[in-house]
């Protein structure tokens, strides 16, 4: 094996961009030429991918399970939506505001999150999510309640690019934000902090025995993930110019979890690949019968978890690995 390489050179090699990654990101530009009529959908996919990426940071890397991650998505969406309705509609600053509010709530709740694991954690994140949903529902004077927030007005991006009907601006904007967030995520997972997160995921009992402050690490990554989810939420508010209660719902928390598991948790691209497959399939199926959609998703989820326990990307990795071995 590569045991001849100096250890730091070996790690450097592992962190380097693979050509498949470059091809992947170039191909995200294809919708502009191949499917110009689907750019709105492409924008939604990019936003969902960003949301799934944020969940991957806590679930896939730190092993912190959440069934209430939509709380931060919704907070970002409502923050951007409400501010644009009552104060100003400049999209970039709204993005920052959404990130800030979600991050603050994320930081506050991370003090609870860091003390629990497994089932208790699922229940707590679920509970916090439901709590926020009901709060938004009853504060209808502010949020519009079940009718959704009306009157979201977003100014053109950089006061120049209108959010057009076809979604050109929306997709360009969402894609850039996704890519920047991806760069940050990529850096995090290759950092000493990212290694510590994987340590927590792999063995939370051993971490204190090597002097690692696991709880501080969890608080930090939970806050970062909340910020990222808040940005995704703010993006959805800006690109659709509406905010519905659905952004805070259990359904959305469950969907993003399904997306990540389908794509492969802890694999960096799992959330993105999962989002593409899930959203494109839903777009194709839901025309036929929206109830039926969850039937197929249920089936797919069971199949993936049974046969590809590490998600689609995990399965692909195993396939290419065995293929490479055979061809050698």
């Amino acid at each position: 094996m590569a045991s001849a390489a100096a250890p730091h050179a070996y790690l450097q090699q592992q962190a380097r961009w693979h050509w498949v990654e470059i091809v992947f990101w170039l191909s995200t530009l294809l919708p502009f030429v191949l499917f110009p009529q689907y750019l709105q959908l492409a924008s939604q996919i990019a936003i969902t991918a960003l949301f799934a990426l944020s969940l991957d940071l806590i679930l896939g890397y730190a092993g912190v399970v959440s069934l209430g991650h939509a709380a931060f998505f919704g907070l970002g969406a409502y923050t951007a939506g409400i501010l644009s309705k009552f104060y100003w509609g400049e999209p970039l600053s709204l993005l920052v505001a959404g990130a800030l509010v979600a991050g603050l709530v994320g930081y506050a709740t991370s003090w609870i999150i860091a003390y629990f694991r497994h089932l208790a954690l699922i229940m707590i994140t679920l509970g916090l999510g439901l709590l926020l949903y009901e709060a938004a529902n009853s504060a209808s004077w502010l949020t519009g309640g079940a009718d959704g927030l009306q009157g979201v007005r977003i100014r053109p991006l950089l006061d120049y690019f209108n959010f057009d009907l076809y979604g050109r601006t929306a997709y360009t904007y969402s894609l850039i934000v996704l890519f920047l967030a991806f760069l940050v995520t990529r850096r995090i997972i290759h950092s000493p902090f990212g290694l510590s997160l994987r340590g927590i995921r792999e063995n939370p009992v051993r971490m204190p025995a090597i002097g690692a402050p696991s709880r501080a690490h969890i608080r930090k990554i939970y806050t970062i993930a909340a910020v990222m989810a808040g940005i995704a939420g703010a993006l959805i508010a800006e690109t659709t110019e509406t905010v519905s209660l659905e952004t805070l719902s259990f359904q959305r928390s469950a969907d993003v979890l399904v997306i990540l598991i389908l794509g492969g948790a802890g694999r960096l691209y799992g959330g993105i690949v999962g989002a593409i497959i899930y959203m494109v399939a839903r777009d194709q199926f839901s025309g036929v019968n929206p109830q039926f959609w969850y039937f197929w998703i249920g089936l797919l989820l069971v199949a993936v978890v049974m046969f590809l326990p590490n998600g689609i990307l995990g399965g692909l990795a195993r396939f290419t690995e065995s293929w490479r071995r055979r061809s050698r």
Binding site: H8, A9, L11, Q12, A15, R187, I188, H190, S191, P192, F193, G194, L195, S196, R198, G199, I210, G211, A212, P213, A216, H217, K220, I224
Partner: peptide, 22 residues
């Protein structure tokens, strides 16, 4: 990676997310 994790934590780099491990 496992031993590097322990060394980094001892040296106080465990919370650094903006630099790469190598």
């Amino acid at each position: 990676e496992a031993v590097a994790l322990a060394v980094c934590e001892r040296q106080g780099h465990g919370g650094i997310w903006w630099r790469r491990l190598p």
